[in-house]
């Protein structure tokens, strides 16, 4: 019950931020841009641009919202000392972190549903349709967002600066998309010690490219290679590890 109240509190706090509203308006604007791009793309396959741009914008919008909301809200809680009110009640720090994360996930899910709804209206207006792969892509966008959410929560708790936490999370996002390429580059390094260290790091960061179905969701062949159960297991392992580790760091943190 306490956790549920905390989750609701976390969602309310997220919604209260003005930045959130600005981003929402921006996202709608971006979908209009996709309509403009559609107009420029020639007569053949104009809907392709609309679908691709929309999906990319949904993902980027989720990323920016998560990074800024996580970084902003937790540090704001500490700065405004509202965290002491929450923690002075018999609520453990672990529950606080857990509810923060679940609140973030709920809001991300709402975001994706809201954005996808607008996107689908535009697709419908364009007299086009979506396949089931489209919805699977939305699912993977949610998984990616959840993963970057736990990463950013970890960086925010472990770092004192909001900017450094955002930058670190963002860099990990990039590296997660680029890990197979990084793996190749690291393989070319001559110094074996450095190579081992970098390899460990590459195998440690989550592979976001695995969830990046939106870059090839129109190919049934490649989409079929994505195993939803394997993906969920991967996601759960990473998230559990990151959240547990964040809880541990937060417990030791001097507030």
């Amino acid at each position: 019950m306490k956790i549920l109240s905390l989750i609701i509190f976390s969602i309310k706090e997220n919604i209260k931020t003005k930045f959130y509203l600005v981003i929402t308006i921006f996202s709608i604007f971006i979908i209009f841009v996709s309509l403009l791009l559609k107009g420029l793309s020639g007569f053949e396959q104009p809907q392709r641009i609309l679908v691709n741009t929309g999906l990319a914008m949904i993902e980027l919008f989720c990323l920016v919202t998560i990074l800024l909301n996580t970084a902003g809200l937790l540090l704001q809680d500490i700065e405004t000392k509202s965290i002491y009110i929450v923690l002075s009640k018999p609520i453990s720090r672990s529950k606080y972190i857990f509810s923060k994360y679940i609140g973030l996930l709920c809001l991300t899910l709402f975001n994706i549903i809201f954005m996808a709804f607008i996107h689908l209206i535009f697709i419908k207006i364009s007299k086009w349709h979506v396949t089931k792969e489209y919805f699977l892509t939305l699912g993977t966008i949610f998984l990616k967002s959840g993963l970057i959410g736990s990463i950013s929560l970890f960086t925010v708790v472990s770092m004192t600066s909001q900017t450094s936490a955002i930058i670190t999370s963002f860099l990990l996002w990039i590296m997660g998309h680029f890990s197979s390429e990084l793996n190749f580059i690291v393989g070319k390094i001559q110094t074996s010690f450095l190579q081992i260290i970098l390899k460990i790091f590459i195998y440690l960061i989550p592979n976001f490219q695995y969830f990046n179905i939106k870059d090839y969701f129109d190919s049934v062949y490649f989409v079929s290679k994505f195993n939803i159960f394997w993906g969920l297991a991967y996601w759960l392992v990473y998230n559990s590890f990151l959240i547990l580790f964040t809880m541990l760091v937060f417990k030791k943190k001097n507030l």
Binding site: S180, I200, N207, Y238, F241, L244
Partner: peptide
């Protein structure tokens, strides 16, 4: 969980393919 991360990622690097050309 930490020790599970490595074999999971190793497996992904080995078995998962995308339509894109390698670097």
């Amino acid at each position: 969980l930490f020790s599970t991360v490595f074999p999971l990622n190793y497996n992904l690097f080995k078995n998962y393919s995308t339509p894109f050309l390698p670097i």
